[in-house]
Design a protein around this nucleic acid. Structure first.
Lengths: 164, 164
DNA sequence: GGCGCCATGTAAGTCGTTACATGATTGA
DNA sequence: TCAATCATGTAACGACTTACATGGCGCC
């Protein structure tokens, strides 16, 4: 929320829409959570209600304290907790399935990854021309996703072949 | 828990130790959670207390229902919620930092990934000779980690160069 | 006798999801 | 006028974490 607000004041609703087409890809969250979080940020003095509009619209803006907190969060890298992967967790127990089923599991993963790659190619076309900060760095994040997907697909195909 | 118990009956304590050197890498969890989960599984009839030992030790075993549930969970692939990555989330807001700091961010990521790769090479040596199911499929999961790390490192180095 | 490990749990609190609830404004 | 969209929130519940609490057993 703090990061998105650096592009200018916005309502929770605005942020939600922006969030869905950008950050949601690397940090899924629900509408409920976003509103709740804005409330907490306001309580903590990291954002302000800069203006109120029709329909109870509240426009938020980052405060100085909020900006400082954001920069601090970006730089002072908290150790990344290793992410969970149910996909890999399942792999550990593939011996519970018949070999053909285990192979099918990897085949399916390869397919799903291919679909995901297509999706990402799609947003690439969409974000190609943006020159705002979010687009520029968003493209770097997207590149990560594309490279990752590539490898994941190759791995799944390789893994299928490992099972006899 | 169900998956680990397919290798034979074990106590919560045993499972915890086994968990820490295997699954914890793809699905971190705490001791509290493991014990709590065993309790729930027992209530649900997916595991049994097969024997009791000294110091209140309870040896659990999977039931038929538990095995069925495990297989079902592996095969009927629930749509994988896209994982969160605070590392990528930060990338979106790197414009808040001076260019040199942003480059440093990617450099640091490359280093951290290199360390992680070393760690994984370490466990590779450790699990190399196992022939049990968990080791065999664990190696496939490990291969994923190694390939992923490789790409992540290359990406971080590339990304550093993208910033002028 | 005592250290180290075996062994199990509870309590409090945060984070996050799903579902529900409500209503105002705008534009075709 | 009425459908779409704007706009904000609450409630209930489950997942997860951190910290605490407790004690038995085996071996040197």
């Amino acid at each position: 929320m703090l990061g998105l607000l650096t592009e200018g004041p916005a309502s929770g609703y605005d942020l939600m829409k922006l969030f869905d087409v950008s950050l949601a890809n690397v940090w899924p969250a629900t509408q409920s959570q976003l509103y709740a979080e804005l409330g907490k940020l306001a309580d903590a003095g990291l954002v302000d209600v800069a203006a109120e509009g029709p329909r109870g619209r509240k426009e938020y803006a980052v405060t100085e304290a909020g900006l400082a907190e954001l920069r601090h969060w970006i730089s002072d890298v908290e150790p990344v907790r290793p992410a969970r992967s149910d996909m890999l967790l399942r792999v550990f127990f593939l011996a519970q399935l018949a070999p053909e089923q285990a192979r099918a599991y990897f085949r399916r993963q390869a397919e799903l990854t291919a679909k995901q790659l297509e999706y990402m190619e799609g947003i690439r076309g969409f974000v190609e021309e943006g020159t705002d900060d979010l687009s520029v760095y968003g493209r770097i994040a997207l590149e990560y996703g594309l490279r990752l997907g590539q490898v994941q697909q190759e791995w799944a195909e390789w893994a299928e072949g490992q099972i006899r």
